[in-house]
Design a protein around this nucleic acid. Structure first.
Lengths: 215, 215
DNA sequence: ACAAAGTGGTAATCGGGCTTGTCGCTTCGG
DNA sequence: CCGAAGCGACAAGCCCGATTACCACTTTGT
């Protein structure tokens, strides 16, 4: 095994240039995947828009699918990080406030760029089993988030003490559905109204009385 | 223009045999699209499983996408027909009963075959603009359904008199999300629990008090 | 300044799958 | 019983795009 000496080049190191190419490829991919669709986007198109050769592409990604996986993962991770950060800032606040912060932060972040929900909820669906797995994993994490918030509300007496797993999945689905509708709709839906709707729905969903168990 | 004479063949008419081939192709497509995925399914695979030649395929469908469009449309149409039929049977019933019938009928019908939600909510997403349009059209119809039910509840005094459009979209999204989760989950989720969850969610969503308008 | 190493673009290769033309067989009408 | 028409299987052509081999150019270290 010969370790090839890596020299700086053009002022910047090899690693830096690779990182820049990778970043430009991801930017181009977000644009093309959401504008033309994932399947319709050819690797050459990606490289052309990114100003990168096909050779470079394969140095960064083994296949087009990996680009989509990376984008999908990044979009969700950043959203979760944002929401988590804001929630710790309102540690002791009441249920209504925490739900409001959670929903508003998420909606504001994800609708800041319409391409994000488009990629997340449309283009990244039904592509491959790997992507399906990653989607399911993220749904699980978001559901965990909602569920723990519901449990917190229950300990405070704002909500009944019951199993919130399915409710959490339903809430995630409702948000997904509204955002998918939002990015596809013409004329566009009002994001404030959407946030408001989800906020009300979540509060109603977790504070509604538990149905009595059948004897 | 010469009108080619059409003769009966093998006891059945030409139209009948075409219809049968078409039906077998659709059955095969439902199976393969949901088992391997839409993109991964080749036209030859479809024809082999259906016992039909590739030539015949092109007599029935101009392209693979048309098969998916047909299946997607049929699944939704049948579900809507079923639900609509049951709802007319409980014309004068109370809000809780009507919502129960609506949800239970839908869930029972669509989960009778796990391939249906798989095709509807996973495989048919992000394929083409035509399919996107058709999806959006069906979401609109289902939302109309939910919305009119909410309005009916409002006229009876069971729910506040407000705009239910976004609530309807949210409910459709919640159902979609839960069913997508259902068909992907291992171990499988309980369909009765899902129906119960959605029922409670819908009732809570439409009966919750309207937020006061900001001055 | 020169030799060597690294880089990036271009172009050729390779494979897969859609699409259609053809052929031999079957069935119908007279 | 015969001619014609319909039918279905096969397979070859064709196009498109992913992947890799090559080569000319740039930069560096001595």
């Amino acid at each position: 095994m010969t370790t090839p000496p890596r020299r700086a080049y053009g002022g910047v190191s090899a690693d830096d240039r690779r990182a820049q190419r990778r970043a430009r490829l991801l930017v181009a991919a977000l644009e093309l995947f959401t504008a033309r669709g994932y399947q319709q986007t050819k690797i050459v198109d990606l490289c052309t828009l990114a100003g990168v050769s096909t050779r470079n592409f394969y140095e960064e990604f083994p296949a087009k699918e990996r680009v989509l996986l990376t984008l999908h993962d990044r979009i969700n991770a950043e959203a979760l990080r944002r929401v988590g950060g804001r929630l710790t800032e309102v540690e002791g606040a009441g249920t209504a406030t925490r739900v409001r912060v959670l929903i508003d932060t998420f909606i504001a972040g994800i609708t800041a760029d319409p391409r994000l929900p488009r990629l997340n909820y449309v283009e990244a669906v039904g592509v491959s089993t790997d992507l399906d797995r990653q989607h399911q994993e993220w749904v699980r994490r978001w559901a965990d988030f909602i569920e723990s918030e519901a449990r917190l509300a229950a300990t405070r007496g704002d909500a009944p003490d019951r199993d919130y797993r399915l409710t959490a999945y339903a809430v995630v689905g409702a948000i997904t559905g509204l955002l998918r509708e939002w990015q596809a709709h013409d004329p566009p839906l009002d994001t404030a109204a959407i946030a408001e709707e989800i906020r009300g729905l979540v509060l109603a969903a977790i504070t509604r009385p538990a149905v009595p168990v059948e004897p």
